[in-house]
Amino acid sequence: MKKLLFSITLLNCCNIVFAQKFYTKNGSISFFSTTYVENIQADNNQVMSVLNATTGELQFSLFIKGFHFKKALMEEHFNENYLESDQYPKATFKGTIADINKINFLKDGVYPILVSGDLTMHGITNKISSKGSITIKEGAITGSSVFSVALADYKIVIPAIVETKISKTIEIKVNCLYDQKM
């Protein structure tokens, strides 16, 4: 009887510890275009992300209109001419973290990770993989990564007249604090 009670209790505890998904609605993704003429940066602080600690599944989703620039006209052109955000309002990533079991979510530390999956934006999906890290500090989980995408891979066309101002590859920085769980 006691054994049964103990095992049921243990099962419940296991559920709490392991069958867990961490998520956020306020993650940050920024991108940078660097050329000798002009540096462009835009930030989106309403990135949604779900990290499944059991399966290693990792997903991101954001609204293109959530990217904000320092120059209003740049933001307008970004939405109207380049990303066509009325037609393609979202960008998503659906992938997995390799060897998720190596991360001990209960122990503080910086764990290097390798993420691979499908990145969809401007209506086009490509397989990408990137290195990153998961940082655990006093129970708080932060995921971060830096990677590059080529505009041509997503059929984002830069007209000749502004070619010198916009880089052909864009650096993307991801930083998400997974502040909620279920």
Partner: peptide, 28 residues
């Protein structure tokens, strides 16, 4: 656990919540 096993389900829910809680202004 079964109801929400699918990570995609949770993501869909987050997207709906975000859409409903933000105001999108017509630009240009």
């Amino acid at each position: 656990a079964q109801n929400t096993t699918d990570t995609t389900d949770l993501m869909d829910r987050l997207e709906i919540e975000t859409t409903n809680s933000t105001t999108e202004y017509a630009a240009a």
